[in-house]
Simulated scan of single mutants.
Amino acid sequence: MTFVVTDKCINCKHTACVDICPADAFREGSNFLVIDPEECVDCGLCVPECPEEAIFAESELPDEAQTFIQINAELAQEWPEILEPKAPMDDYKSWSGKPDKLALLERIPVKELSA
């Protein structure tokens, strides 16, 4: 089992989860974080740290969020690791709690943003 970040993180991107992760399993995109399933040690420490309640154990993932298992695995291979917390996105308050944000997912790694 691994933990999975869902669309509740899109356009919010709080990073308290990054600071608590003992395996450095988080990867960062322009408007979303994912967990690398190959690095996750299944400790669950990240779950209570997420103010958006965007992280779930794979076995407890809601049916409508099952696609995020593949999204996390795929993007974790492309995106750089994030090792230190950062401020959330500037307009996170306007996106907090909004449902169905998958269409807003940007598949751009952070390193490409500054290029």
Rank of each mutant, 00 (worst) to 15 (best):
C43E: 09
D36A: 15
S94R: 08
E84G: 02
L83S: 11
E39C: 10
T6E: 08
P62W: 09
W95Y: 15
E84T: 12
D42Y: 13
N72C: 09
L105N: 10
P48K: 09
S30Y: 08
L113S: 04
K86Q: 15
E58T: 05
P99Q: 06
P37M: 08
C46F: 13
V34E: 01
T6Q: 13
Q66W: 00
V4R: 00
A73Q: 10
T67E: 14
T15C: 09
L45W: 09
A76S: 13
K13A: 10
F56V: 03
C43I: 06
C43G: 06
K101Y: 08
L45A: 10
C43M: 04
E38F: 12
L83C: 11
A25L: 00
N31Y: 08
V34A: 14
Q66I: 05
D36R: 15
K98E: 07
I35K: 02
D42K: 12
V110S: 12
D63I: 03
P80L: 00
D36C: 11
E52L: 08
D91H: 10
G97T: 00
F68W: 15
I35E: 01
N11M: 06
L102E: 04
E58M: 11
F32E: 00
P80W: 02
I10D: 04
E58N: 05
A57I: 00
A23Y: 03
S59E: 14
C43P: 12
G44A: 13
I35M: 07
P99V: 10
L61S: 07
C40I: 09
K111Y: 13
A73I: 05
P80H: 04
A103W: 15
V4C: 01
Q70I: 05
P37Q: 14
C9K: 04
K86R: 15
E64F: 11
T2S: 14
P51D: 04
L33P: 07
E38S: 10
S94C: 03
D42P: 06
Y92H: 14
D100Q: 09
C43S: 11
A23V: 02
D63R: 04
K111D: 12
E49A: 15
D42V: 12
A16N: 14
T6D: 08
K111F: 11
F3K: 01
R27E: 04
I55K: 03
V4F: 00
L33E: 14
K8P: 01
L45N: 06
G97C: 05
D7Q: 11
S59P: 02
P22G: 07
A87P: 12
F68S: 02
F26D: 06
P109W: 04
I82F: 08
A103Q: 12
P88E: 05
H14G: 03
